[in-house]
Design a protein around this nucleic acid. Sequence first.
DNA 1: CCTTTGTGTTGACGCTGTCCACATTATGGA
DNA 2: TCCATAATGTGGACAGCGTCAACACAAAGG
Lengths: 196, 196
Amino acid sequence: MYTVKMSRTGYHHGDLRAGLLASALELVETSGPEQLSLRAVARAAGVSPNAPYNHYADKAALLEALAEHCFDQLRGELAAAVSAADPGDEITAVATAAVRYALGHPGLYRLAVAHLCSDNPRTRAAEDAMKAVVENSVTAATGRPGSAALTAGVWALAQGLTLLLVDGSLKPPPQQDVDEFVREVVQETLTLGRPD
Amino acid sequence: MYTVKMSRTGYHHGDLRAGLLASALELVETSGPEQLSLRAVARAAGVSPNAPYNHYADKAALLEALAEHCFDQLRGELAAAVSAADPGDEITAVATAAVRYALGHPGLYRLAVAHLCSDNPRTRAAEDAMKAVVENSVTAATGRPGSAALTAGVWALAQGLTLLLVDGSLKPPPQQDVDEFVREVVQETLTLGRPD
DNA sequence: CCTTTGTGTTGACGCTGTCCACATTATGGA
DNA sequence: TCCATAATGTGGACAGCGTCAACACAAAGG
């Protein structure tokens, strides 16, 4: 997965900053975002409880970094999905990609969503980049520049669908694959049930 | 707000269960959901740190109760909004009502969303009741029974919009009122930008 | 009246985030 | 090359947290 520059000299770690991030990414999936403690991350990275403070101001800063990482990856996935989509199908593609990513990294996604409220500029920037991808998908799908309202709506639909699916509050009907379900939901919603 | 049966006898509290809930509801707004500690709730209720354990199995149980309370109230608001809506306007009405409620109780809403993942049956039931209201709004607005997919989509749109607005990730343009913004987003999204 | 049951208190444990002082290592100018 | 300085990791300590066990008080009912 992660090949960190592992030159532990016995005392110094080599690249603790990255090591902590990697350990945290693992722990957040195995133990859940609620259980993620700074000390546990340090332990997993093989380092004393206070070592992280040399690289992150406090626990919140580590969580910010995790959220930023999540949004960066997600943006990448969305952008790839949009450019690989059949013409006219871009909106469905972003929604599907978002859901797929979140279901693949539920712990990280939940953590990122839970800490959305923070006003860290880097996190905000990562979010804005995601929104830009969504906007692209809207203009690509409709053939004209999408209004701010429509972009917001598509973004909200994707985000809401993802959240509800991740925490099991919404389940695709049996013998329907998640992708199909998302596609159906998005298409019916965008046309209010009217056949296109 | 809350007139709890306050018959503190000097030792017994009278109705600690309700008192704890009330204190928690206050604290979750004033101090934020992340800072909400069982001990702080007990303190606010004027009782020792362990007293809550006579009424809630653990901290998670208290949070469940809060989430359930939130969903119950929200369902009430949504139902009222649907029945008060102009015919054909029911979907916009639910979305607006959801956003309005969440913005009025951001701490509680965030807590409820963060703990959606739990599989407490009472919480699930409260959620299902909300979904039923949304379904009603869809059938009322379209004039025919809404499909499961469409209901899910509207639900996701409302939930996503609410979440993004609550944590400031989405801001209505200046000099546009939140209600108007939500209305515009919902209408444009449901018709993919096509004028109706 | 006395026992049982519900309720609140006190004390303790391990865990957490964080501060401080200190130890160790890397770096770069003389 | 040597040494000062900065970067990085360690250890100890503190308050606050969730929770358990033992105990104290009050209400209820035979």
